[in-house]
Simulated assay, not measured.
Amino acid sequence: MLTINIINRSGHPLPSYQTAHAAGMDVHAHLAEPITLGPLQRALIPTGLFMEIPEGYEAQVRPRSGLAYRHGIGLVNSPGTIDADYRGELKVLLVNLSDTPFVVQNGERIAQLVVARHERVGWLPTEELSETQRGAGGYGSTGTK
C-alpha cells in the first residue's frame, strides 16, 4: 500500500474508499458557509487538504457520479491533476450543468480522488511512424459492429 503525507485542516474525514474495490476516494467540501451554484456557474471549492504526492505519482480529481446524475454537477477540468510538487490546498472546480441552482454544503462529498502512477517521456523526433490497421482514423473511425 502506498502511503501519502496529508494535512487535514477541514475537520472532515480524510479521503476514503466507500467500497472494498473502489478506485476513487471521496473528498469533502470545507466551507465556512454553503455555496450556491446557479445554472452553468462554477466555483472553486476548498477541501482543507494538503498532500505530498510521491514523485512518479499524480492525484486525479474526478466527478462523483451521483452528483452528476442527480444534480448535473461536474468538474470543469476532469480529471484534474495534482502534481507531486504541489503543496497548496486541494480545491475542486465544480460546475452546475443543470437548469436549477445547487447548494454545496460544508462536509458534502464533492469529488473523487484517484492516485495513479505515471511515466515521464522523452520525445524521439522522427519522420515516420509504424503502420497500424487503424492508421490515422480518429473520432468515431472504428465505428460500431
Score class of each variant (00 low, 15 high):
P101F: 03
E33A: 14
S78K: 00
T126M: 05
Y86F: 12
T142C: 03
K145M: 10
R42I: 01
E33D: 09
A43M: 04
Y139C: 02
Y17R: 15
I45V: 14
R120S: 07
Y17K: 12
G143Q: 14
H12K: 15
G72T: 02
A84E: 05
P125T: 07
Y86W: 10
V104R: 09
P34N: 10
A136C: 00
D85A: 08
I4C: 13
F50V: 10
L90C: 08
Y139E: 11
P63R: 00
E131G: 00
L2S: 10
V92I: 15
Q60S: 03
A20V: 13
A59K: 05
L75H: 01
T126R: 07
G24Q: 08
L124F: 07
G24T: 05
L67E: 02
R117Q: 13
K145W: 10
G135N: 06
T81I: 11
T19G: 11
P39N: 09
V92E: 02
A29F: 04
G66R: 02
L2W: 10
S98C: 06
H118F: 14
I73V: 12
N106W: 04
L49C: 06
L44P: 03
G74V: 00
S10I: 12
F102L: 04
L113D: 03
S130G: 00
L124Y: 04
L94G: 03
P15Y: 08
R120I: 09
G107A: 08
V92P: 01
R9D: 15
V27G: 03
L49M: 10
T19W: 07
A68D: 03
